[in-house]
Write a protein that binds this DNA or RNA. Structure first.
Lengths: 148, 148
DNA sequence: CTAGATGCAAACAGTTTGCGTCACT
DNA sequence: AGTGACGCAAACTGTTTGCATCTAG
């Protein structure tokens, strides 16, 4: 009941995001809405192709990125462009800028104790809980304002 | 005071991890210990090179991966090999297998309400909090036992 | 008519791998 | 001597980009 017709919605969403409405874009969006889980660009491409066989992977990438920037989609976890490692030190979490990808540590006490309630899939052995506080850093927020 | 001499330690750690002790490995480890933050392989490489100019990037990668597998290091966030997107649905978090990288959703209620206490860097505008419950899924835990 | 979307192929960045050589135990 | 580490270069994967063409408004 909380799901409005995607089709109608998308025209509206596009307008709000300042994205011209195109057929490809709409099909990609509808396809995404029908993909539960955490699809990769290739998976989206494969599914979209069933409706638009001539579409190119580049178009899928370009639109996924536009959707991400517009907030219509989220990435499961912010990708930093390369592997980032850290030494097993005292417990902490991360502050991540979704725009410039900068990472800072915050003390685990700033989040407080965490606990998983209820059932996890049988046999899953928890190693650690990691919290990402995702947002825009000061520099990126001000850029955003300026750029418009 | 909680920091034992890295040098002595590493011989011990290596043995426990079943990794033959080599000079390169030790230098990489010591370098990492002296790098706060979230270095990328290239950054580690650059720094290690100051002590071992002839070292190759591949060696750094190989050893970072060995350290990760041995648990001497952590990745800041589990990398899934490709971009993963998801639709802005109701609030949830993720269960991530650190070995096979499989992602499952868990309801946000299984973690409970989160709140950031204390100061964040000035101007940081929080968009969302994302919790990853990182561990080994049933399949990977059993493989691990078997493989030894 | 014009801004912007698309397709293609080439370019890229990051990472891994195969293999010959070298070092430690 | 043998196991495994290292260096090099090539291979690979995922992603982006430049450019010519097409399309919606």
């Amino acid at each position: 009941m909380s799901r409005p017709q995607p089709t109608t919605d998308f025209a509206e969403l596009s307008r709000r995001a300042g994205l011209p409405l195109t057929h490809h874009r709409q099909v990609i969006y509808e396809t995404l809405m029908a993909m539960p889980g955490h699809p990769s660009p290739e998976e989206v491409y494969a599914k979209v192709r069933r409706r638009i066989p001539a579409i190119s992977l580049a178009t899928v990438y370009k639109n996924l990125n536009r959707f991400l920037k517009a907030g219509l989609l989220q990435e499961v976890s912010v990708h930093h462009g390369s592997l980032r490692v850290e030494v097993n030190d005292h417990p902490h979490h991360h502050l991540v800028c979704s725009s410039c990808k900068k990472i800072e540590d915050i003390d685990s006490e700033q989040i407080g104790p965490l606990q998983v309630r209820g059932r996890l899939p049988k046999g899953f052995a928890v190693q650690r809980l990691s919290v990402d506080v995702i947002g825009l850093c000061a520099r990126c927020s001000s850029k955003k304002k300026a750029s418009h």
